[in-house]
C-alpha cells in the first residue's frame, strides 16, 4: 500500500520505509545528488540532496518519507546552497574539464550545468595528488575525487574486495587503495568489477579508452542530468 508526500507541491507516492530520494526517483522526479546510487546503501555525505522537509533541512537520500510531509526541493534557496557545495568540490580537487575524458558523462560537471554554476567562486586549492597507473587495465586519477565513497561501497558490498577506503579527517580526507603498497596493481581489482564503473567523476578509468565516445553522444549530451538520472 502506498502513501503520498508533497514534493515541490506535487504528490509523490511512496511505500513504507522508502526514502524521499528513492520515492522521488521512482516517480521520475529529480533531486540533485552525487553520492547516492540506487544500487547501494545511502551515505548522506555529499549533502547535495538536502531538501527542506516540513521546514527542516534533511538529506533526501537518508530521510524516510512520511505521509503528508511537505518537501521543498528545487527552490532558489536550496539550489543556491547546492551550487555553493559544488563550487567547493570544484576548488578542492583538480577538475580540468577541457581535457578530462569523463567530460560530458561526468555527474559533477552535469550537476554543475543543471544548477547553473558559472564560476568556481572560491580560490582553487590546486592539491598535489598523484595518479596511480600501476594497474594494467585501470587508471586512478585522484585529482578528481569528490569523496562520494561509491567505489568504497561498490568494492565492499558488490565485489567483496574492499579495494578502496577513505582516510584522513576533515579537509584532509582522501581516497586510498587498500593494499600494503597502496598501489592498485597490488589489489584484486579487475576491469569487470562494479567498482570499476561506478565512479560518477573521472577517478576510476578504463585504460586506453579516453575520448572514444564523440561529442554529442555522451551521456549528458543526450539528456540533461535531471532527465537522464531518472530513467
Amino acid at each position: 500500500m502506498s502513501d503520498v508526500f508533497l514534493l515541490d507541491g506535487e504528490q509523490v507516492p511512496f511505500t513504507v520505509g522508502q526514502t524521499v530520494m528513492a520515492a522521488a526517483r521512482a516517480a521520475g522526479r529529480y533531486i540533485p545528488h552525487l553520492c547516492w546510487h540506487p544500487e547501494f546503501q545511502p551515505h548522506g555525505s555529499c549533502r547535495l540532496c538536502t531538501v527542506k522537509a516540513d521546514g527542516h533541512f534533511a538529506a533526501a537520500c537518508t530521510l524516510a518519507a512520511r505521509p503528508g510531509m511537505t518537501v521543498d526541493n528545487r527552490t532558489a534557496e536550496l539550489d543556491d546552497q547546492r551550487r555553493t557545495l559544488l563550487q567547493m568540490l570544484f576548488v578542492e580537487g583538480n577538475h580540468f574539464c577541457p581535457s578530462c575524458e569523463k567530460s560530458g558523462a561526468c555527474k559533477l560537471q552535469a550537476t554543475a550545468y543543471e544548477l547553473k554554476m558559472m564560476t568556481p567562486h572560491f580560490d582553487h586549492f590546486f592539491p598535489d595528488r598523484a595518479v596511480d597507473a600501476s594497474h594494467p587495465d585501470l587508471l586512478l586519477d585522484f585529482n578528481r575525487c569528490i569523496l562520494c565513497e561509491l567505489c568504497v561501497r561498490a568494492s565492499r558490498d558488490a565485489d567483496g574486495k574492499n579495494v578502496f577506503a577513505i582516510t584522513g579527517r576533515g579537509i584532509k580526507s582522501h581516497l586510498i587503495v587498500n593494499s600494503p603498497s597502496g598501489r592498485l596493481a597490488d589489489t584484486a581489482m579487475s576491469l569487470a568489477d562494479r567498482a570499476a564503473s561506478v565512479c560518477p567523476v573521472g577517478v576510476i578509468l578504463a585504460k586506453g579508452r579516453g575520448f572514444v565516445i564523440p561529442i554529442g553522444e555522451r551521456r549528458y549530451d543526450r539528456q540533461q542530468i535531471g532527465a537522464a538520472e531518472e530513467q
Binding site: P98, E101, L139, G210
Partner: peptide
C-alpha cells in the same frame, strides 16, 4: 608529463 597518453591529443590542443 605524468598524464595518460590517450588524454594528450585533447589536452595539448589547448
Amino acid at each position: 608529463q605524468g598524464r595518460p597518453y590517450w588524454e594528450v591529443p585533447v589536452m595539448v590542443q589547448r
